[in-house]
Amino acid sequence: MKLPVYLGLLHTSEGTLADSFRQVSEGHGDEPDIHFICQSLAAQCDQHQEALAPVIRRYGEVADDDEPERLHADGLEDTRTGPVGLLRDLQDLYLLASLVDITWTMIKQAAQGLRDEELLAVVTACDGQTSTQLKWLKTRMKQAAPQALLVAE
């Protein structure tokens, strides 16, 4: 059964996303909305990890497995500067959050197949927040893109 592999992927990806939200929050502190909202969203990712913990304990952790390693995405190591840099960093967050979002979808499918009520409850509590994170990133990028791409120096 590969579900534990994917639970591990989700857990790691939420952690990567949390770190990256924090990275962007700090790196773009001059954009107060991004600074504060990214902190809130990082905290959401932390909570998702905590919510997954009991399920992961139940299915067992996967140690070194070369297959899922290639599934992982790297987080943001540092942030760019300027309006276009902000746009690119938000775009990177969007990619990371998309990975989390679609992984939740697959975990939900598996949970339904298993009729695992506990896991389904975790999915229900978390996957809506992830899709809102994506919507926020999209909203903010749509706002920033014309200025960054057309008039910013």
Partner: peptide
């Protein structure tokens, strides 16, 4: 109409960055 209207604090931010 391609994005939300730019609110005041963001307008001042764009001025700060030199794009307005």
């Amino acid at each position: 109409h391609w994005a939300p209207p730019t609110h005041a604090m963001q307008i001042f931010r764009y001025v700060e960055q030199g794009s307005i």
